[in-house]
Simulated assay, not measured.
Amino acid sequence: MVTRIYKETHFDASHRLMHYEGKCSRLHGHRWSVEVWMDGTPDEKSRILLDYNIIKNIINVYDHQVVLNKDDPMVEALSRFQTPVLTNGDPTSELLAEDIRERLNTFCREHDLSARVAKLRVWESEGCYAEVFAE
């Protein structure tokens, strides 16, 4: 039997888009919202597919952080003060959705859980989100 769970969580983080011309090319912050739908077979004993707090903790790697493209020249300067969260490309809501999906799926694989991300939304602001689905 396949079970689906849902978790909504939030984080505050700043980012900038190096390859975009416009105001988002400057460092700025958002109150990001993330919605996660996970499918799989719950554990036989606990009947839990994946603890909701695990989802939140994995996503919290971004909370109160600066998220930058690993190739951004700002990384070197910022690293003298704090370690930014680095992405393989500009940290758009689309890329963050893919990154969070991969972090969640990797955790499940490494812990031999049947849970996998079915759908995931990253809201950059009210009315604007990126969505990824299971591959």
Rank of each mutant, 00 (worst) to 15 (best):
K70G: 09
R26Y: 13
D90G: 06
N88I: 11
S33W: 11
H19F: 09
I58F: 03
I59Q: 03
V36F: 01
H64G: 05
A115N: 00
E110R: 13
R26I: 11
L95K: 09
C24G: 09
R80H: 12
L78Q: 03
V85W: 14
D43A: 01
W32R: 02
E21A: 11
E102V: 12
L49K: 03
V85C: 08
E94W: 07
L49Q: 04
P42S: 00
E98I: 15
V34M: 03
S46A: 05
E94G: 15
P91W: 02
Y52F: 08
A77K: 14
T92N: 10
H30L: 03
V61L: 14
N53Q: 07
I48S: 10
R80M: 12
V34T: 03
E76N: 10
F81G: 10
R109H: 13
V67N: 10
N88M: 12
M74S: 07
G89N: 12
F81Y: 09
L104V: 07
V61D: 13
I59L: 05
I59A: 02
L49N: 01
T92M: 05
S46H: 04
N60M: 10
N69Y: 12
G40P: 00
E35C: 11
W32C: 06
F107P: 04
G22T: 05
H64Y: 05
R16E: 03
V66Y: 09
F107D: 00
N60I: 07
I55H: 00
T87L: 10
L27P: 10
D51C: 04
M38C: 01
E102L: 11
S114A: 03
T41P: 08
L27Y: 09
V36P: 01
N105Q: 07
Y20M: 15
L50D: 06
I48C: 11
P91V: 06
V34F: 01
Q65S: 11
L78S: 04
R47N: 13
R26S: 12
C24F: 04
D51K: 03
V117E: 00
N69M: 12
L95Y: 07
G89E: 14
P73R: 05
T83M: 15
N57G: 03
C24H: 07
K23F: 15
K56P: 01
G40K: 03
E110C: 10
D112C: 15
N57H: 06
L104C: 07
W32D: 02
E98A: 14
N105K: 11
V67H: 07
I55A: 00
D71G: 09
H19T: 10
W37D: 00
P73M: 05
I100W: 07
L68D: 04
R103G: 04
L68Y: 05
P84G: 02
K45W: 13
R101T: 15
E98F: 15
C24R: 04
P91N: 04
T106N: 14
D63Y: 02
V34K: 01
T83S: 14
S25K: 13
R109Q: 11
V75Q: 05
L95R: 04
V75G: 07
L86V: 07
D99P: 11
V85H: 08
L96D: 14
G40C: 00
I58E: 06
I54R: 02
M74T: 05
H64Q: 05
E110K: 14
V36W: 00
Q82H: 11
D39V: 06
I54C: 01
R101P: 12
H111E: 08
D72C: 07
S46M: 08
H111P: 02
